[in-house]
Design a protein around this nucleic acid. Structure first.
Lengths: 118, 118
DNA sequence: GACATACTGAACCATTGAGTTCAGTAATGC
DNA sequence: GCATTACTGAACTCAATGGTTCAGTATGTC
């Protein structure tokens, strides 16, 4: 059932390894966007952004749909379940509790809002 | 406090983006190992494995200590807290519940044990 | 129909990454 | 002390990545 896990994890972790792409995911969390909009927001050529989107789509983290001449990007459906699960094993190993995790999440949010995405 | 988050996440997600390195982490979860042992287990030159270890150490996922001529590798202390937290936001966005996550963890484990690491 | 917009594709460039070999150096074993 | 073992470092190869430019193609707008 859950086949090709390694390849899947390769794709999504390396998708997440780029700050721009993480930024795009955060952007899309707020709502859908066209490639042009994303390219502007991240000060990058259209072509450059299209490549990032391709990587994210390949990893299943983003879905896109072209209507007319505009390609609209949204967060993918199944998201980071497998990735969360993988990391989850380590959370357990390190005996990090969920409420501690909550604190880290909060820190991370504050941090990102303070610095803007980088 | 939680400074340089982006760089940190870059380092650890790209550390996790490689199947061999994820394999090493799983191996170390079972217990410490020397570089030679790991190199053998993953059919790779010593030098190659040393580079992987360097990446994992850089990302704070592994700690090493050299005693005599043997460098012993262990899982790092703080682990994947920041990474778990980052992904955690998406788990929430996708409204994946912790008990569903449990199922995915179980699937993933069974999968890996069935296939061996790849 | 003409012009602007939004994307697509090919080609290129510089950098990085995974892996190797080969030549050390330092510690152990006998 | 000499061979072996375990790692380290430099240098190299090859492929992939992140980014660009430039030249299309398709779609809207007036």
């Amino acid at each position: 059932m859950v086949q090709y896990v390694a390849a899947r994890l390769d794709a999504s972790f390396s998708a997440l390894a780029d700050a721009t792409r993480r930024g795009v995911l955060e952007e899309l969390e707020r709502g859908e966007a066209s490639i042009t909009e994303l390219a502007n927001r991240f000060q990058m050529t259209l072509t450059g952004m299209k490549k990032h989107i391709a990587v994210l789509e390949e990893a299943g983290l983003v879905k896109t749909e072209k209507v007319g001449r505009v390609r609209t990007c949204r967060l993918g459906a199944d998201g980071l379940a497998a990735e969360a699960a993988w990391i989850e094993r380590y959370r357990r190993r390190w005996a990090l509790r969920f409420d501690e995790l909550d604190k880290v999440v909060e820190d991370l949010k504050r941090e990102e809002e303070a610095n803007g995405r980088t």
